[in-house]
């Protein structure tokens, strides 16, 4: 009899707890949950809240990463647009492609720029390249998605340039020390420090009048047959972020 009593009592209590309306059951569960079972239910609640918060944190981190990336893209687009608007000289009616410098090839003063525009964007070998401040160089090789630009700071680059005010002609060249000069100026020519040098009308690469730099100092050439003018270029090749690749040559 004793053995039957406990199971019977527990079953009866269980049945009594089930009986009644749903509201009644919820009330009874709530009462027990707030008293006898409080520590256990509270710990379950804490576990669940913790888990939900971890999920929320992970979701927010993902969202933050996506927003940061979007923000970065927008900033880059803004910078590109500002560079585009900041062209300080008239490029005429020549169309151009905006590119970003994504790397360098070569070393020191002989290095070339790698730009993220290629044949897919209509870039061709020999296309002149400028920045918002002046000339940069020319395209020497093209792949589908990028191209290599030979900058004027590379000794292999040379183009005819002239004094903007007096039209005195010369050849733009750079040496291995990184100095950019206007060489082959005829003795007695009217040129002085501070003059602005632009691309010459003799250039087959650039249209006439694109800014190159200013004359820093004048010196005689080693053979005393010509004058050489050391220039301060408008464009700092090593600091370039965006360049404009002109579509088609002069």
């Amino acid at each position: 009899m004793k053995k039957i009593f406990l199971p019977l009592a527990l079953v009866l209590v269980s049945i009594l707890l089930i009986l009644g309306s749903t509201e009644g059951r919820v009330k009874r569960a709530s009462m027990l949950g707030k008293t006898v079972f409080y520590p256990f239910l509270h710990s379950v609640k804490l576990f669940r809240t913790n888990s939900a918060l971890k999920g929320e944190i992970a979701r927010l981190r993902e969202q933050q990463a996506a927003t940061t990336l979007e923000n970065l893209n927008l900033r880059n687009a803004l910078k590109e647009s500002q560079t585009l608007q900041g062209i300080s000289f008239d490029t005429g009616a020549i169309a151009f492609e905006v590119g970003e410098v994504i790397g360098y090839s070569g070393q020191f003063q002989q290095r070339n720029l790698v730009v993220n525009k290629g044949s897919a964007q209509g870039v061709k070998v020999g296309s002149p390249v400028i920045s918002a401040r002046g000339i940069v160089g020319r395209v020497v090789s093209v792949a589908v998605t990028n191209c290599v630009v030979l900058p004027f700071s590379n000794p292999r680059f040379q183009i005819p340039v002239m004094d903007k005010s007096t039209s005195v002609q010369g050849v733009l060249q750079s040496d291995l020390t990184g100095k950019t000069r206007m060489n082959m100026i005829k003795l007695g020519s009217e040129i002085s420090a501070g003059d602005t040098i632009v691309t010459s009308n003799l250039s087959t690469l650039y249209p006439k009048g694109y800014p190159v730099g200013t004359v820093a100092r004048i010196s005689d050439s080693q053979d005393y047959l010509f004058i050489s003018a050391e220039l301060e270029p408008f464009t700092q090749v090593e600091n370039l972020e965006h360049v404009f690749i002109l579509q088609g040559r002069k």
Binding site: S14, L16, L17, I18, R25, A29, L41, V44
Partner: peptide
């Protein structure tokens, strides 16, 4: 009963079934 408190609408059912 403890498990039933997590499902208040059927409070007592699991206690009864397990018993």
């Amino acid at each position: 009963l403890l498990y039933d408190t997590t499902q208040p609408e059927s409070f007592g059912m699991h206690a009864l079934v397990l018993l």
